[in-house]
Design a protein around this nucleic acid. Structure first.
Lengths: 232, 232
DNA sequence: GATGTTTGTTACAGCTATGTGACAAGAAGG
DNA sequence: CCTTCTTGTCACATAGCTGTAACAAACATC
């Protein structure tokens, strides 16, 4: 596994929870910082510039929600991905949480697998590859900055999932991926979706790319799919 | 789907639950064993060496949690993946459950889809992938990562069986193998196929490799075939 | 060279993996 | 509330792979 040692700041008042999360993340190859309140958390953020923040909803003093809002308002910390931890899966929380600018939220209790999966997904979204660098392959251009795809100058109209799928393929060319791997990488690992769903999205993507470019996405029979300029 | 018939041991005191899970898993292509208590479970583990264990949290006698801990302490069963089933999603349970070394846990009630998905995820993680290094012989390259074969730069188009056959040969060069041995190694031992089928696939592989490389696969009359750079 | 045995080659029927269109449920946005 | 877009799933169509048989060619033995 190529897990770059990303740093994650865990903010929770219960040390037992912090510990549990830290252990899970460290097993997955992340480096962890801990804070029990917003003051410490803020100091830690300024000081160590973590790659992302895990923030408990309920905190003594300033609530996690309020803290998240504040971080998203500050230019210095605006870009920092935040995952909110909520105690119960109440709809209100969800709405407010996303409103506050958090990138994702997880309902306690959660499994370490789920945590790591969503954390990966958020980190991936936050750092596509080069931050604003367009990728071009044989007249097919994917521009993350504009969130737009063009095939031989013509705009390609695709949904979010197809976009992420194409982005993954263009940043991972030449190699074959199984449906399961694609579900992990593009959908985010913690979703339970039929494998054949991948086929459908591949189909939609190919169709959108048109006959001039659809051959870039190749079927590897019995295995999965591959993005490649080399024709077989 | 080519689900390799993995064996799953289901440990739960309620036979109705066991049954339900077994049905779900068997529909997904898994083979199931059942046990209603830890004693039976342990016997079954020693006896049948299942690929993974689904363990109920609450069990009469030894609790599932305690049992999981014991299994993770024993070298013999240490590597066996365990998924804990918990009746209620209480935080305490989760913390303890993960402490016990379980690889994941699922909170009842759960959907069969979720069960199968998480089971797959755990099994995938437990099964390390094979070698991912490209092999090259006289301009013939087999790249497992890309799942692709090239002969003098040109992509070679072959089916899954020919691919596996070539992979076997390139990792076992210079030695002659009988048709039976090849069936065991490439087809997978427990299939009944005519020996002459090997000949047909050899033929297909040679044809796909083209005249420049087909001589690498040599016929050993009265014995079988051999992959060798030395001309006989 | 005749004969029996082993291997090469081809065609084909059945099957499995993948392609494809349609649909219902949900999310987004008026 | 309605409209529009997206998404996951299904059912069916299709294409490609697989195993087998049948025959041809090569080889061995005498």
């Amino acid at each position: 596994m190529t897990t770059p040692g990303k740093t994650v700041l865990i903010v929770d008042d219960e040390s037992a929870i912090r510990e549990m999360i830290a252990v899970a993340l460290e097993m997955a190859g992340y480096h962890c910082l801990e804070a029990s309140n917003c003051q410490d958390a803020h100091a830690s953020i300024i000081d160590s510039k973590p790659d992302m923040i895990l923030l408990d909803w309920m905190l003594p003093g300033t609530s996690g929600l309020e803290f998240a809002r504040r971080l998203k308002r500050d230019d210095l910390t605006k870009e920092m991905p935040i995952i909110l931890l909520t105690a119960k899966g109440e709809e209100d929380n969800k709405v407010q949480g996303l409103d506050s600018g958090a990138d994702d939220y997880i309902t306690k209790p959660f499994s370490p697998r789920e945590l790591v999966a969503r954390l990966k997904a958020v980190l991936r979204r936050a750092t596509p590859l080069g931050i604003e660098e367009a990728i071009e392959v044989q007249g097919l251009v994917l521009d993350p900055a504009c969130h737009r795809v063009t095939a031989s100058q013509n705009p390609v109209d695709i949904g979010p999932t197809e976009y992420r799928l194409l982005q993954f393929f263009m940043t991972h060319q030449e190699r074959a991926y199984s449906r399961t791997q694609l579900l992990d990488q593009v959908w985010g690992g913690n979703v339970y979706v039929e494998e054949r769903t991948v086929d459908v999205h591949i189909r939609r993507l190919r169709k959108a790319l048109g006959s001039a470019h659809e051959h870039l996405i190749q079927t590897v029979r019995g295995t999965g799919y591959r993005f490649s300029t080399k024709t077989s």
